[in-house]
Structure formats: structure tokens, C-alpha cells
């Protein structure tokens, strides 16, 4: 076991994938000598060369578009989008091409492309550096969408995503890059949970709290605070948004009868709406109260002096839990 930050665990996962398969490439802006603005690709170009760790021109559509071409030639490109808000110039290539080429070919093509996106708020950044665009991608058939929340998952899930024959949008909780945990860097796929399986990270009895990415830690803190008041919250880390492990969610909500969904993205038309609808369909007679959502407001992500108010925090999560009991 080694103590690693989430960022370093990402780096180790990428390194393993590159060691295991010479077709794996890393590409993006500043991923070479600099190691990326978050140093996630630190040292990879030095060890694997400029042909496999490619500093690209500053053009996101170009990065994803050429990654598609490389995949068509048999490579497995891992693309870094520098910040969440910069993925939109590449959205056309992701949505109209990457997601749809397999169907267009009636299954003769595989597109093993991973698009890594450092994502979410809480780092005091300027505009476009703190966004949560996951719902745009979960809404697009043909993509797999996952989000890691801790160092072990970061290490394992990036390798699983790279091994997937389908395109994967890989969200990394950038404000958790410096969180530390024990990671077994010698562990192998057989030791890991399947990529698209949700995990109960805190068993509980009275209400279910659903989260993913950076919100998981906040929800665990909320659960600890609730426990002091005698309320037992079950916290589930969804890990995968598309496909969604709805079975784990339904099992939990059927037991607790109450559910709060937490994410940083705006609540309106957000991923939580999909969760609430599906839970309502499947747990209708077990629900004691409506599924409540806590997330970013339906205003644009604010200037950073206001982001603590915008992001769901412990108090807003507990407030929502209280409301599910007050119903």
C-alpha cells in the first residue's frame, strides 16, 4: 500500500495503462514537459516519449477529432481537456462523432477514446474553470460517463476506462486532487469493482444520499454530522452516471424510504432529475417523501467569492435531509 493523492493516483493509473498497452497515448494541452496544469501526466512524456505523450496545438475540437482518427488507426488515446469549461469547443466532436461512429458503422468500429475532464468548483478559479457539464454527456447515447471520488477509484477507474472499447467521459474532481488515501498500486482489474457499479460508501438506515465525484466527501461529512443527531444516512457513490447502476440505488431507497441527491451541477435539468424520476418510478410505494435535490443554483457558476454559497455544503445537505423527514 502506498499513500497517494488523488492526482498522483491518476498519474499512476495512466502510467500502468501505458506500460501495459503500447497503443495507449496521452494527448492534450501542456501534458508533456509541464505534466499538465494539475501535473496529472507528470513524468509520462519523459518515460514514454513525445510520440505517446503528445503536446497538442491549443484546439479542443482538434484534440478530440484527431484522437478519434488515432483510435480508428488502432490507438487508445487518452485526451486531457484542461478544464471543464473548455470542453465545449470539443462538444461537437464528442457528441456528433465520438458517440455515434459505432452505430454509424453498424458495429464494425470501436472508439476506445477516454476524455479526461478535471471538473467541478471549489478552487477559487476564474470563469469556465469550475463547471459541471456532466448532464450534457449523460444525455448523449454512445458515451459512457464516469466520475471518480477518491484515490483508489482514480487509480483503478482510469485503467478500466482506457480498457473499455467504448468512448468514456472521465470526470475528475479537481478540488479533491490533493486528498490522500492508501492505494495498492500493484492491484489488478480482478481486485477492483466493475467500472459501472455504484458503491455504498456509508451504510445507513433512515435516508439515502446519492452523490458522485467531489460531492461524495461532503456527503460523508454530512452523514457524520447527522449521526451525532441520531440520524443514520446511507451514502452511495454512484461512480458511473451512464450506465447508471440503478439497482444499488433502488435497493437502498426501498429500505430507507427517503432520498436526497447531491451534485454541484445546477439542479434544473441536472443529472439529479433523472435519478429522482427513476427512483419515483421504481420505489413509489416505499417512498415516505419526494426525492429532493441539492446542487448548484440555476444561475451560471458565480465568481469565486460566492462559490461557497453556490456549491452544496454540509448544511444544505442536512437541510434537505431534514425536509425529507418533515414531509
Amino acid at each position: 500500500m502506498t499513500t497517494l493523492t488523488l492526482g498522483k493516483a491518476m498519474n499512476e493509473g495512466l502510467r500502468k495503462a501505458m506500460e501495459n498497452d503500447p497503443k495507449v497515448l496521452v494527448m492534450g494541452e501542456d501534458v508533456g514537459k509541464l505534466g499538465g496544469v494539475f501535473r496529472i501526466t507528470d513524468g509520462l512524456q519523459k518515460d514514454f516519449g513525445e510520440e505517446r505523450v503528445i503536446d497538442t496545438p491549443l484546439a479542443e475540437s482538434g484534440i478530440v477529432g484527431t484522437a478519434i482518427g488515432l483510435a480508428l488507426r488502432g490507438y487508445r488515446p487518452v485526451v486531457e481537456i484542461q478544464f471543464d469549461g473548455f470542453v465545449f469547443p470539443a462538444a461537437d466532436q464528442i457528441i456528433t462523432q465520438l458517440a455515434k461512429l459505432r452505430m454509424r458503422s453498424l458495429g464494425s468500429l470501436e472508439l476506445p477514446v477516454v476524455v479526461r475532464i478535471p471538473w467541478g468548483g471549489g478552487i477559487g478559479a476564474v470563469e469556465h474553470h469550475s463547471e459541471s457539464p456532466e448532464a450534457y454527456f449523460t444525455h448523449t447515447a454512445g458515451l459512457r460517463v464516469v466520475a471518480c471520488s477518491n484515490p483508489l477509484d482514480a487509480f483503478a477507474m482510469i485503467q478500466q476506462a482506457i480498457a473499455s472499447p467504448d468512448p468514456v467521459i472521465f470526470f475528475e474532481p479537481k478540488r479533491r486532487y490533493w486528498d490522500k488515501a492508501e492505494v495498492d498500486v500493484e492491484s489488478a482489474p480482478a481486485d477492483w469493482a466493475p467500472l459501472h457499479e455504484a458503491r455504498v460508501v456509508q451504510p445507513g438506515e433512515h435516508a439515502t444520499v446519492l452523490a458522485y465525484g467531489p460531492s461524495v466527501k461532503t456527503c460523508l461529512e454530512a452523514a457524520a454530522a447527522a449521526a451525532e443527531e441520531g440520524r443514520s444516512l446511507e451514502v452511495i457513490d454512484l461512480r458511473s452516471l451512464n450506465p447508471l447502476d440503478i439497482g444499488t440505488v433502488v435497493d437502498s431507497v426501498n429500505r430507507t424510504g427517503r432520498c436526497v441527491v447531491v451534485h454541484e451541477a445546477p439542479v434544473f435539468s441536472g443529472f439529479g432529475a433523472e435519478l429522482a424520476a427513476r427512483i419515483t418510478e421504481r420505489c413509489f410505494y416505499r417512498l415516505e417523501s419526494p426525492v429532493l435535490r441539492v446542487g448548484g443554483f440555476s444561475a451560471p457558476y458565480p465568481p469565486s467569492r460566492n462559490e461557497d454559497h453556490y456549491l452544496p455544503d454540509l448544511d444544505r445537505i442536512l437541510d434537505a435531509v431534514d425536509r425529507t423527514f418533515a414531509w
Binding site: 510520440e51 477529432g65 488507426r73 488502432g74
Partner: peptide, 13 residues
Amino acid sequence: TLHATGYAMGVQR
């Protein structure tokens, strides 16, 4: 055109 360029980069590699 981008897919073609990426493919060509693959041929190079």
C-alpha cells in the same frame, strides 16, 4: 478532416 489527420498521425506512429 480531423479524423483523417488523427489517422495520419497514427500511421506516423
